[in-house]
C-alpha cells in the first residue's frame, strides 16, 4: 500500500518540520510515508487569483506525482481542498479529469486521515501547556475537519485547551488577498491576534501553515511571544516528550 506525503509547497520550503513530524508520527503506527518528488504546488495561488492556465501547469505535477498512490496525506485543509477544484480546472481534458477525480478520492487532510481512516485519536502525547486552536476555514468549512483536531487535542495529556473567541472567523490570509487587499487583510489578522492574546495561551495550534504563518507574522510584528505550531508538530513534540 502506497501512502504518500503531499508536503505542499509552503511547508516544503518554509516549514519542513511539519512534514518531518507527520512522517515520524505515522511511522509509529507502521505507516511508511513516501515522498513522490515530482510534486510542486497544488496551484491554489494561481487558481484563486483567476490564472487557471498557470494553475494547471502546477497542478499537473500533483496529478503525476500521486498517480499510483493509494493514499495522499497533506498537512493543509486548503491544499487538500484545492484538489477538489481540479474537476473545474480540468473539465475540458477527459484524461486529466479522470486523474483529478481519482486523486480527489484518495487525498486526505492530515487529521482526517488519522482519525477517520486510521482510527487514531490518542497518540500518547504529553504537552503541558496552555493551548488555543484556530480552525482554518477551508479545512473546517469545506472539508468538515472540525471534530478531528478536537479529539486529537483532547487526548494530549497535560494540555489545557482554551477556546479561541470568534475562532471561526477567517484570519485574513486568503493567499494573494493578503497582498492585494493588504489593509483589509491586516485588519482581519489584527482582530484574530487580539483574540489569541485574550486567551493567554502560550501556544496557538492549527492545521494549516498558511493561516498560521499569517497569524504568526502579525504576532511577531506586535512582539507577542505566542508560539505557533501545526498540530502535527505539537503531537510529535508531545510523543517525544512522553
Amino acid at each position: 500500500m502506497k501512502v504518500s506525503l503531499f508536503i505542499t509547497c509552503l511547508n516544503d520550503a518554509f516549514f519542513p518540520k511539519v512534514g518531518e513530524a507527520m512522517v515520524r508520527l505515522l511511522a509509529r503506527y507502521g505507516i511508511r510515508l513516501q515522498f513522490p518528488e515530482l510534486q510542486t504546488c497544488c496551484g491554489q495561488p494561481a487558481y484563486n487569483s483567476g490564472y487557471w492556465a498557470e494553475a494547471r501547469t502546477s497542478a499537473i505535477t500533483i496529478l503525476e506525482a500521486f498517480e499510483d498512490s493509494d493514499f495522499v496525506i497533506a498537512p493543509s485543509g486548503s491544499c487538500t481542498y484545492m484538489i477538489h477544484h481540479y474537476e473545474a480546472l480540468f473539465k475540458d481534458n477527459p484524461l486529466l479529469l479522470d486523474k483529478a477525480l481519482k486523486l480527489k478520492q484518495k487525498t486526505y487532510e492530515f487529521t482526517q486521515f488519522l482519525v477517520q481512516v486510521v482510527g487514531i485519536t490518542n497518540m500518547g502525547a504529553v504537552f503541558p501547556h496552555k493551548v488555543t486552536y484556530h480552525p482554518s476555514c477551508h479545512g473546517s468549512r469545506l472539508l468538515g475537519a472540525r471534530q478531528e483536531p478536537m479529539d486529537l487535542l483532547a487526548n494530549v495529556r497535560g494540555l489545557e485547551l482554551v477556546p479561541l473567541p470568534y475562532a471561526e472567523d477567517c484570519c485574513g490570509f486568503g493567499g494573494t488577498f493578503a497582498v492585494k487587499m493588504a489593509p483589509i487583510s491586516g485588519a482581519m489578522v489584527s482582530e484574530k491576534v487580539d483574540h489569541v492574546i485574550e486567551t493567554e495561551a502560550e501556544v496557538l495550534v492549527g492545521l494549516d501553515m498558511a493561516c498560521l504563518m499569517n497569524i504568526a507574522g502579525h504576532l511577531r510584528y506586535r512582539d507577542e511571544p505566542v508560539r505557533v505550531m501545526h498540530l502535527a508538530e505539537l503531537l510529535y513534540e508531545g510523543v517525544r516528550g512522553a
Partner: peptide, 22 residues
Amino acid sequence: LKGWNTYRVAPILAKRSFREQW
C-alpha cells in the same frame, strides 16, 4: 512584500527544504 510586511514579519525559507532532507 510591501502589503504583507506592513502588518506582519515575513518568515524566511528553511535552511533545507523538506525535499532536500527527505
